[in-house]
Amino acid sequence: MPKSTVRKKKVYTPPADVRPATTTAVRKKPSHVALPITAVALIVLGIGWLVVYYLSEGAYPVASWKYWNLAVGFGGMVAALGILSRWR
């Protein structure tokens, strides 16, 4: 049986009116030194808050907040994650 010919597709080039203008690459500045330090501090404080809460069986850091102490601890860690997403 004869072998079929292979058709090559042309490389797509968008029309000139749709094509983005070529510009030089803009380099963004690196992050400030305080950004990772703040993020690590929030992680440590969040974990520390949770450890103190569990080890004191809810008596510390703030007894009247009850389970909201968990939200404070995890909230600190989530805030650190948000800060680290901005790190360059």
Results as ranks from 00 to 15, higher is better:
41 A>E: 04
12 Y>W: 12
25 A>H: 15
47 I>L: 15
18 V>T: 14
11 V>N: 11
82 G>V: 05
19 R>E: 13
8 K>Q: 10
53 Y>P: 01
60 Y>S: 12
1 M>L: 09
51 V>Y: 05
15 P>K: 14
17 D>P: 02
47 I>S: 08
25 A>D: 14
63 A>R: 15
18 V>N: 07
32 H>L: 10
49 W>S: 04
27 R>K: 14
22 T>R: 11
58 G>H: 06
12 Y>P: 04
27 R>Q: 13
30 P>V: 10
66 K>T: 11
7 R>T: 14
69 N>H: 03
28 K>A: 12
46 G>Y: 05
34 A>H: 11
58 G>Y: 03
81 L>V: 13
74 F>T: 10
34 A>E: 11
67 Y>C: 02
83 I>H: 00
9 K>I: 05
2 P>K: 07
27 R>Y: 11
84 L>Q: 01
77 M>A: 11
39 A>I: 03
80 A>T: 03
50 L>T: 02
36 P>S: 09
75 G>A: 06
80 A>V: 05
21 A>C: 04
12 Y>K: 15
69 N>E: 03
81 L>F: 14
72 V>F: 15
52 V>Q: 04
79 A>V: 08
23 T>R: 08
23 T>K: 09
15 P>G: 07
67 Y>T: 13
13 T>W: 07
68 W>V: 08
7 R>A: 08
39 A>H: 01
25 A>I: 15
55 L>S: 11
79 A>R: 00
73 G>H: 01
83 I>L: 13
12 Y>G: 00
29 K>P: 05
73 G>F: 01
5 T>Q: 08
12 Y>Q: 08
38 T>G: 07
13 T>M: 06
4 S>C: 07
38 T>P: 01
23 T>W: 00
46 G>N: 09
40 V>N: 02
55 L>W: 06
6 V>Y: 03
68 W>F: 14
53 Y>D: 00
69 N>I: 02
7 R>M: 08
16 A>C: 01
39 A>Q: 02
31 S>Q: 10
49 W>L: 08
79 A>T: 12
16 A>P: 00
66 K>M: 10
83 I>G: 01
25 A>G: 04
47 I>G: 05
74 F>A: 10
13 T>F: 07
62 V>A: 05
57 E>C: 03
39 A>E: 01
48 G>H: 05
43 I>F: 09
56 S>N: 04
39 A>L: 03
15 P>Y: 07
56 S>T: 15
2 P>F: 12
22 T>H: 07
31 S>H: 12
85 S>L: 13
29 K>F: 02
